[in-house]
Design a protein around this nucleic acid. Sequence first.
DNA 1: TTGAAAGCGCTAACAG
DNA 2: CTGTTAGCGCTTTCAA
Lengths: 341, 341
Amino acid sequence: MLNHKRPTIDDVARLAGLSTATVSRFINGSAVVSAERAAKIKAAIQELHYTPHLAAQMLASNKTRAIGLLLPTISGAFFAPVLRGVETRAIEKGYSLLVHSTQAQAQNAAGKGTFKKILAEHNTDGLLIFAASVDATELSRLHSIGFPVVLLHQASPKEFSLPAITVENKNGVRALIDHLIEDHQRRRIVQLRGPENHDDTYWRDLGYRQSLEAHGIPYEADLIETGGFNTEQARQAMRRILTRGIHFDAVFAGDDESASGAMMALREAGWRIPQDAAVVGFDDLNLAEHLTPPLTTVHSPIEQVASEAVELLVKQIGGEAVPAETLLPTYLVRRNSCGCS
Amino acid sequence: MLNHKRPTIDDVARLAGLSTATVSRFINGSAVVSAERAAKIKAAIQELHYTPHLAAQMLASNKTRAIGLLLPTISGAFFAPVLRGVETRAIEKGYSLLVHSTQAQAQNAAGKGTFKKILAEHNTDGLLIFAASVDATELSRLHSIGFPVVLLHQASPKEFSLPAITVENKNGVRALIDHLIEDHQRRRIVQLRGPENHDDTYWRDLGYRQSLEAHGIPYEADLIETGGFNTEQARQAMRRILTRGIHFDAVFAGDDESASGAMMALREAGWRIPQDAAVVGFDDLNLAEHLTPPLTTVHSPIEQVASEAVELLVKQIGGEAVPAETLLPTYLVRRNSCGCS
DNA sequence: TTGAAAGCGCTAACAG
DNA sequence: CTGTTAGCGCTTTCAA
């Protein structure tokens, strides 16, 4: 397909009048090369437009220089900053990025008997695994072969330890609900929970409960529904709440996308926000400030989690030890959907 | 890092009592292997948990079995179906997917003098290039070395021919504007244009103009603004229109995300949709039916474009000829934001 | 610091 | 249909 054969390291070595080994050392910085020869090599590389053949490097070094990102799905506003953070940092570190949404595979694998691991130790040096992307068996297998892994928005299984990074869910929600109760006198606060078995769901719920408890407000099952961290699901959940005909004066939607869905359902039913019910979210995605009214929420450093995760993974690949758990701080962002002006 | 050395094709061959060549043939289906031996090989592979070493395959075959997807950015609701379509089909075809948003790189490369081609012929077998992701020079270079490329939502440069795939923008918009004029008696229709130098922008504008012309309505520069296919930009563009104090009774927002922004701006200003102004979009993203009111728009088969693009690319990689241009049909979706009930 | 040379695991002639 | 074998382009001992 290509017109000219691409230049090899041998071509460079020949042109520079040196051995391939020296060129290789120069390229990888794996040993000091005399300044004089380094210059020659650099010139030869430029002249030939030489780029190392990745596959050959991999084969010889037994490294892929690629990291894999496993996501449940790539849809949704939430994953944009995740991808951005991961990609930017990965490139910076000289790794290429393989992205795979396990949901896409599930659709695909249905019908076939085979379960092929599209992203694993055979084509990456390490894996970034987002909550709900792979099952415990695979996690355990990766751990057992000592393969570098970082878990995002997901705690390590109890049986063994895999480095995990996430945000301060509980305290964030705590501040959020405190604000609703203390500054806006709301007491009947609906919660639209995220997906079950999702750690964020667990901790956000806990923050919600603790705030209620601290203010002497009982936890009421009637006020709880599952929004699934998803606009459409949240919209329907909100409708179900509305159908119950129960009294409430605020909605904690689980995340911003859910908040958007909750607002739709509320508005359809003729409710005014925040007069009839305050609505708050979590994440502080771009969309938050563009909702009507602008959404009060908890700022979550999503992109930073992503880029820090890459950092942790690369360290592991390099054989360094990394902290078992990293928790990035969150903070309350007051806009208008809570009643602030 | 790994405990056990991974099995090689030699281990499989030894266990099966055959040659590596036969095993290789079986794995790649590159020649017929007798049923009896095939069974033996299959068993050996299972027993050893053998997976081919990708780098070795690449090096020996001079193929990467990876395709690259170049996007301007991964943010935005629009790209979710693109990614889904590409990934699903790529996996199906046995290719892995490398994603790169050129915007992320631009941020990164700023400051450095180097421009490294993160995705190109050295690490992929072919490239899927979305509109506005790479410049003409790089396109020309890829073409000159005969590297497989498919352009998405972007026409081939005039100087040479690269296969391109996109949707029927013009006729879609034509039907949309016709609907506004004929069925809802709108005559002063604002257009929020997409980014300049974007082919979709050009064709959508043409559809808009042709519909106006067909109905004897003059094209008025005052009614035109740039929405950039982006919620926030569109919102601001809409505000600018509003500031002009001119009369209008409908808004063609360029795409659905822009429509969402336009709606926000209109609502802020106290306009009712569709009574005071109809609002219509393009794409028919998931969000369209969830806007208030549900958005009348043009359905664009985004995911299908993506998966068809993979198909075209894989064909090229296989040395097959492919059509220079592929245009997928669009159709009008009437919901309520146009005034339909 | 440098060079020579032995592979890394696999594919693809080539010969049978 | 099957086996033998020569590389693919690079990294990495081992000696010098």
